Simulated assay, not measured.
Amino acid sequence: MSSATQFPARMSVADFLDWCPEDGQVWQLVDGEPVAMAPASTTHARIQAEIARLIGNHLLERGSACDVLMAPGVTPHLERAHNVRVPDIGVSCSPGGDDGSLLTAPVLLIEILSPSNHRETWANVWAYASISSVREILVVSSVSVGAEVLRRRPDGSWPEQAEVVSSGELHLESIDYVTPLMAFYRTTRLNTPR
Rank of each mutant, 00 (worst) to 15 (best):
A45I: 03
M1H: 11
S144D: 15
M182C: 07
R152C: 04
W27G: 02
A49S: 14
V107F: 00
A52K: 06
M182D: 13
H82T: 15
L113E: 04
R62E: 13
V140H: 02
G90S: 11
D67T: 14
A71H: 02
Q48Y: 00
E50M: 11
E111H: 00
Q48G: 09
S133R: 01
D98R: 06
P115E: 11
A129E: 00
S64P: 03
V74T: 04
W19V: 05
L102P: 03
P72I: 05
V134P: 00
E148I: 02
N191A: 15
L17H: 04
S141W: 05
H44I: 07
R119G: 14
G146L: 09
N83P: 05
M11C: 11
H171W: 08
A45E: 15
N57T: 12
L113R: 05
L78Y: 09
R62V: 02
V13A: 03
S12G: 12
D88H: 06
R119N: 13
P106S: 06
E111N: 02
S101G: 12
R10T: 14
P159I: 09
V35Y: 03
I89A: 05
I131M: 00
E22A: 13
D67K: 11
G24C: 08
P95C: 03
G63K: 07
H58A: 10
F184W: 11
N57K: 12
A81T: 14
R80Q: 13
G168T: 10
V140S: 03
R194P: 15
V30K: 09
E120R: 13
E173Q: 12
R153G: 00
P115M: 10
E136V: 03
H77K: 12
L113M: 07
T121S: 07
D176E: 15
F7W: 13
A162H: 04
P115K: 11
P8F: 08
V68C: 07
C93R: 10
G168I: 09
A45H: 05
P72N: 06
G32P: 07
L138D: 06
I47Q: 01
T188P: 08
S94R: 15
V149N: 01
D155P: 05
I55E: 02
G97M: 11
I51V: 14
A65W: 07
A127C: 08
F16T: 02
Y128A: 02
V139W: 00
E136N: 05
T75N: 11
P106T: 04
E148R: 15
S2C: 03
E50V: 08
N191E: 12
T121I: 12
S142T: 11
L59Y: 05
N117T: 15
A129D: 00
L17Y: 05
E79W: 08
S94F: 05
R53I: 09
S141N: 15
P159T: 10
R189E: 15
S167N: 12
V125E: 00
V140G: 02
L181S: 08
V30H: 06
L172Y: 04
R194C: 09
S12C: 10
A38V: 06
Q48R: 10
S114T: 12
P87L: 05
E169A: 12
Q161T: 14
E173Y: 02
A162N: 03
D176Q: 14
D31F: 04
R151S: 14
S12H: 09
A52Q: 09
Q6Y: 06
P180N: 07
V91W: 01
E163I: 08
V13M: 05
E79P: 01
G56H: 07
L113V: 10
A38H: 07
S141I: 03
R151V: 09
S92W: 02
